[in-house]
Amino acid sequence: MIELPLFIDLGDAAVHTLNGIFRGSILFMIASGLTIIFGVLGVLNLAHGEFYGIGAFLLTSIATFFVVRIAAPTDPLSTAIFAAAIVIAVLLSAAILIPIAGAIEATVIRPIYDRAEMYQLLLTYALLLILVDTIRIIWGSQPVRPAAVDGQQIHAALDVIPMEELFGFQYSSVRIFTIFIGIGTFLFLLWFFDRTKTGRIIRATAIDREAATAIGVSSDRVFTLVFALGGFFAGFSGALYSVSAIPATAEMGGTALVLSFVVIVIGGLGSIRGSFVGAILVGVVWSWAIAEYPPAEIAAPFALMILVLLVRPEGLYGAWGEIE
């Protein structure tokens, strides 16, 4: 018999919600790439979650490399140096995914653009399985964390901002930082696709590939760029997640992929705004379920998806195939 709590402590409620926004921020960085890749290339990349997984594992290795070489944070200066090293580790992890994703697009995905969707799904599914095994071969099958610093996890060493004094309850400053990164990524992508030349060339290619070719756009290059960009943000997200005390596992990419589907269906396929709103909603619902009723952890986001599909079949921001 499961006991539902009669009332929820306000501090708990805030923590669940913040955890949800944190998970939503992570999810957004994965789902936005998935949705942009679908919007521009027309391919639903089932292996996209693995870019996130690889980013998380890369972070464990790169952060460990730094952690064992630099001083543990004890005072503001050493904390700043330590934090900078972790930021570099996160960016490096994400950057490594640029050539990985780019090469995968150019060699494996490119030949199948004109094939039926079933081929694309089968091929990217095969890619997913291969990448999962690659992760197992490199990092093993056990959950992996970065090396501890003076017996504590990286995030604990970095959680020095006194959240309790600021907000009245204890919360991880690394997670708050990740939330801001998620919001920053969202604003960056909006600006990139709305204002920059490259962003608008990508949109033009998504809207009408042939008309874009007829003004001199190499769709091959655009597609590789978009795939690499998606890989970067997924890897970035995985690395950030890894910093926040959650061990990297070979299965994490699969879970992320499934939840990203929920996010982009809720948000509307191809919509960046939709992915953001969808990711935050899914993250919050997911986190509340984990905290209050764990058996519904996966069912809750999907129930939300069904609800949205019934009320608004095109998603909250229906923009099928066009980035907005």
Binding site: K197, R200, I201, R203, A204, I207, D208, E210, A211, A212, A214, I215, G216, V217, E322, E324
Partner: peptide, 25 residues
């Protein structure tokens, strides 16, 4: 080349449509 129909880049302004070719080539 002006394709059949018009195949403009929807969601973008007239000016953006005119500038895109210059940005690319």
């Amino acid at each position: 080349y002006q394709p059949e129909g018009r195949d403009l880049f929807t969601g973008m302004t007239v000016e953006e449509n005119l500038r895109l070719p210059i940005w690319t080539s």
